[in-house]
Amino acid sequence: MSTQARPGWMEKPRPVTQVGKAIALVVVVALVCVPFLTILSTSLASQGEVVENGGWVLWPTEPTLDAYRDILNGGIVTHALGVSIGVTAVGTTLSLLCTVFLAYALARPNVYGSKPVLLLVLFTFLFPPGMIPSFLVVKELGLLDSYASLVLPVLVNVFNLVVLRGFFQGIPEELYEAARLDGAGDLRILWTIVLPLSKAALAVVGLFYAVAYWNSWFYASLYMESDHWPLQQVLRTYVVAGEGLTDTTTGEGTVSAPQTVQMAVLVIATVPILIVYPFLQKYFTKGVLTGAIKS
């Protein structure tokens, strides 16, 4: 199995070890993939086949997109999908912008007030304010049931900030000085030198923000009325807690949504992650490690 790059000094691995490793790897891959496969298959099967098989299908005999048609025809799920996409897009943009500004200012030694700001930012990491006071702040600001309540309270993540700051600090000082002698201001240096050199870190931090916004449901359950919910909170209510969908799809409320429909919601909530994932995966080690090592 592993004949490709074995150095000369290394013993030939024993067959038993090889087989053991292969089995372990197959198990790991199966444990991750099979659950995803079964929800995808169930969402593509007909409701009759799912009921007959006891609630799930591993391979649909007659694949159909009925479940997807049901939920994407303008009901609760369609709206929630729109909310999730909007919050993720706007939130990620704002978060990246603020994090870049803060990280850059905190990475440069010539910024007025950066030392106390750095200390105050790091302190929040040690002592988070707590759920109840955070809730009351959002309430006092009049943000309840506004989409801003899903973005502003989580605008900057300290870990992401530290990752980016570490990356910016790793850029050689000579580049800054050369640009400065050419007459470039700090913002121009950020735009033309620092950001292009930090693509890997930006990709990773952007992904972390986007995933956090896309996956967030708790704040929506705290702050938002049910007709403004994002997809994950809809998923939580109708699939995990099994409440009925009062929706155009069934016409009547309180009936638990059909299994195929539930699984289709689950698939739609997962797919965006599966799509962006391969593109950003190559940056993970690079981006995460710089942060981890610097912090």
Binding site: P35, F36, I39, V211, W214, N215, S216, W217, Q232, L235, R236, V239, V240, L266, A269, T270, I273, Y277
Partner: peptide, 10 residues
């Protein structure tokens, strides 16, 4: 990268 909602549902 999958949310807790999805993990629990799975």
């Amino acid at each position: 990268f999958v949310s807790w909602v999805i993990v629990v549902a799975l």
